[in-house]
Nucleic acid binder design. Structure first.
Lengths: 213, 213
DNA sequence: CTTCAAAAGTGGCCAGACCACTTTTGGATT
DNA sequence: AATCCAAAAGTGGTCTGGCCACTTTTGAAG
């Protein structure tokens, strides 16, 4: 069913797989990534395709390359806007509440965009989520939200969100409760069906349930 | 002296040259770009390097590729040709469209918050706006939006918005047209009365009208 | 003039080669 | 044994050429 979205763009697929790999191997900022040749072999694709993906990530500032040494996961904060945000956060000018609310602004908008965009809803990434939700008894909250923002397609929004998510820390980067899992399932299902209101309602429910954690 | 700034990466250099090419040849949004092979020859580099640059721009959403057809400048909103090149912030690595969309995310949320919050709606600031709209034949677009964001009460959101607004520049910091003025009046009125949907509808209308400016 | 298959043009992807640079290695020197 | 240094290995940077899949154009047959 997802044939048409799968047949395209190997280099985009590689970008996804790289993110998986970084997660699985727990590669931290500043640490070394596998070499191009190794990635090429491990992923079963040509080196040039790997390079296309890596160069894209480099232009996004997500990785650094050092000639003769290798590639490294970029230390965060290269973006002007991001720096400003960080300054604001460190100043503690207001409360965590504003950070949280602002983060949620981006999350809600992403949900709206996806729910209202025909071409975004049937993406294979959702399928993998549903499978995971079936198999696993829990799921990482931040991962779900990040995937949603990424899929919405606004890369600047993603950058802003990511910084805010980092600040939110372990209150976001944690496994869901059983109750939350059900809500998340409802939300994703609604998004996929294009039910914007239901999706947002589930999202609100999720965020409220989170308060008790 | 500029040892460290010297262009080692060909693919980054190509990104720059593409920007020049688009400017010189006056290629507009939606129009076709030279083929990879032509670019390769014209820029005197290998096709694989050209592809690394192009794929990076694609991931950034600046160009679209259609298999068998060619590559096209991403058709964002129908801007005037004036500063298509400013769609690129090569150091900032973000596209104009994303900046605008992200800015609007914050604006819309502020409108929602105000419309749904009893204590925010009757604020005196709105009164002064209505007076001004009565007397003056026009009003500064940025001022209106800034006031809305400020009133919504999320200071972090305001900071983010302000940075984005600076970047948007004179397309935002300008006086409204007669048509816009009426829309703005409708929007403010709706907000004050708590009519969220109507307010957002007017906002959308405003932003769409802005495209023609 | 219409039809439609072949050709041309284009992006997608891969394999191999060479270069420049850095790190590692292992033998020679002290 | 410790040190030093040149060779080897590892890695990113780039180019060439090839093959495939897809779209548009072309030109000959009807």
């Amino acid at each position: 069913m997802d044939k048409k979205t799968e047949q395209k763009k190997v280099f985009l697929d590689i970008v996804q797989q790289l993110r998986q790999l970084i997660k699985i191997e727990k590669i931290q900022a500043g640490e070394k990534l596998p070499s191009e040749r190794v990635l090429s072999e491990r992923l079963g694709v040509g080196r040039s395709s790997v390079r296309e993906a890596l160069r894209s990530l480099e232009l996004l500032g997500l990785i650094e390359t050092r000639h003769g040494e290798g590639m490294f996961l970029a230390s965060t904060q290269k973006h002007q806007l991001v720096e400003i945000l960080s300054m604001f956060i460190l100043e503690g000018e207001k409360s965590k509440k504003d950070v949280e609310l602002t983060r949620q602004i981006h999350e809600k908008e992403a949900i709206r965009v996806i729910s209202c965009t025909e071409t975004l809803r049937p993406l294979p990434v959702w399928g993998s989520f549903f499978v995971k939700l079936e198999i696993e008894s829990t799921i990482n909250c931040r991962d779900v939200l990040r995937e949603i923002i990424i899929t919405s397609g606004n890369r600047l929004s993603l950058k802003v969100w990511f910084q805010l998510a980092v600040y939110t820390g372990d209150r976001l980067n944690r496994n869901s409760t059983e109750e939350e899992k059900l809500i998340i399932q409802t939300m994703l299902k609604s998004m996929q069906l294009g039910y914007e209101k239901e999706a947002l309602k589930a999202y609100e429910q999720w965020m409220n349930a989170e308060q008790g954690i």
